[in-house]
């Protein structure tokens, strides 16, 4: 039912192979550099450190020498919300329509000039993907020269987050229009993090397009709001039904299990269900 509503719309999404990710941080810096993300003298208080893309370090909790670690890059999940109808947790609570769901792309936007800083969206987001500007950005003398005109620098008092580099989509569409084409090719619209990743761990594209790598990697189930049919793929906090458009892949079971908070014994059941669903 949900898919039909969207017609031929795109549903841009990301697949991150956690077994390829080395935690190098290129995606974080590519994002900051692409999107004019500011920095302060002290960025070690991670609660006020603006990182649209943040790489988390997970451990399997086992003691030496059975320890294992995994890095998990976390952009905005661009949630489709319950039933994938576009009622993302953040969009549902924004009183200013400063953040909105684009049915044509599946991208959750953020319009800085509309935001008045109530931060409801930050409270609603289960992924800590949103950041508040407690201060005006300040660059050291001369460094403003490197700012890109494609993304407006933000001011104090507004919330910001990953846009899936939406300006790159606009640029790709403009180019296609000038060349009298109707469509934007897969490689023409890629986010800065995807492009920079030296490990090729990030794949980006249209989840609705079976020709796109993201679709092939996770094989999203249209009857279950895009739930991955690849048994090695998962989404974060799947049970909240936020229906994220960011998928993760790992061969390691403990990593897949870390994608949600399971009570004792729950994971085994969830696994069974998933395997059945796959069959």
């Amino acid at each position: 039912m949900t898919q039909q509503n969207h017609g031929n719309a795109h549903k841009f999404g990301m697949v991150i192979d956690l077994d390829k990710c080395t935690g190098c941080g290129s995606c974080m810096v590519a994002c900051m550099s692409e999107n004019n993300v500011p920095f302060k003298e002290d960025e070690s208080n991670k609660k006020d450190s603006i990182t649209w893309m943040r790489v988390y370090k997970l451990t399997n909790g086992k003691s030496f020498p059975d320890t294992d670690v995994c890095y998990l890059p976390r952009p905005c999940m661009h949630c489709g919300g319950k039933g994938d109808h576009g009622h993302s947790p953040c969009v549902s609570v924004c009183p200013a329509t400063a953040t909105d769901y684009d049915y044509g792309t599946g991208i959750v936007s953020q319009i800085y000039t509309r935001c008045f800083g109530c931060r409801y969206c930050m409270g609603a987001c289960p992924y800590h993907a949103r950041f508040f500007n407690w201060w005006d950005p300040k660059w050291p003398e001369g460094m403003e020269e490197y700012l890109s005109p494609d993304v407006s620098p933000r001011m104090r008092g507004v919330v910001e987050k990953c846009s899936f580099c939406f300006h790159r989509y606009q640029a790709a569409k403009d180019k296609a229009y000038l060349e009298e084409r109707d469509t934007v090719a897969e490689e023409e619209y890629q986010t800065a993090c995807t492009q920079a990743c030296p490990s090729g761990a990030i794949t980006f594209g249209d989840l609705n397009n079976p020709d796109h790598a993201v679709h092939q990697l996770v094989n999203p189930d249209p009857h279950h709001c895009g739930r991955p049919r690849n048994p090695k793929a998962f989404r974060l906090l799947e049970r909240l039904e936020t229906n994220p458009k960011v998928y993760y892949i790992s061969e390691r079971e403990w990593v897949r299990k870390a994608g949600d908070n399971y009570l004792d014994g729950e994971w085994e059941k969830a696994k069974m269900k998933k395997t059945k669903g796959h069959e």
Partner: peptide, 19 residues
């Protein structure tokens, strides 16, 4: 590097305008 780049390379403009 065939298109890949590390975080320091991406940050090189900050080295240019380094205080």
């Amino acid at each position: 590097n065939d298109g890949g780049v590390c975080l320091h390379g991406i940050s090189a403009l900050q080295y240019l305008y380094d205080p």
